[in-house]
Amino acid sequence: MFEAKLQQGVIFKKIVDAIKDLVKSVNIDASTSGLSMQAMDSAHVALVSLKLNENGFKDYRCDRPITLGLSIENLSKILKCAGNDDTITLQTDEEEPSSLKFFFENQQASKISEFSLNLMSLDSESLGIPDTDYSSVIQMSSAEFSRICKELSSISETVEIETSKESVKFSVQGDIGAGSITVKNNQSDKDVDRVDLQIDQPVKLTFALRYLNMFNKAVSLSSTVSLNMSEENPLMVEYKIDDLGSLRFYLAPKISD
């Protein structure tokens, strides 16, 4: 028996919206500790990792671990039927479920929708992501980072991110010319302006902006985003989801030949 009831169903809708351009089908692993999901894009350049802790759910029960293979496109269609204020409940009482039930309830419990989504059996191609002590960590407004990526992607497909003790510099070079945006440490009390840099070792890494622009579809999940980098390592972009868990994106760097 597996049942997970999320009070703010809109969070689940936002998560699916944030990943639907990146991955086509995912395995959600349910266990006693909560839900986790890891999936790569078709080019195996980017990876999304979702962790939702059981204590962030209104009700949560998972008698034994199960894997739920879902088509993101079909999941999206079902979630379109959930209101932003609805609670969302996922449920199955089979051990090897062939489908997953969804219940959407409005606040007054006066409207209850029930859907059943057929499940897929997907071969899990999981990667072992080591816990990394990143040498450069940037916490900043997710809206601001999203804006920087959008603006720079009009000049080049590739951005170089260079950190130093007191600032982070995003640089682009394209056919029309070049540009850079430098953001300094800023302890402002205004969220949108605050920038926290923890730079143990400066890094200079290059990434494809189109993936960063896809990651930034997660801005609605958190007002802040953290960029985690170490030399010769994939970038990890993390959106913490209040009281529930986190949505992380990993992106392999581009290495100048």
Binding site: S126, P234, S256
Partner: peptide
């Protein structure tokens, strides 16, 4: 030119 690396060059398959 910059070559786009793949994640499996950094993370082992499990």
């Amino acid at each position: 030119i910059e070559l786009q690396k793949k994640l499996r060059e950094f993370f082992p398959k499990i």
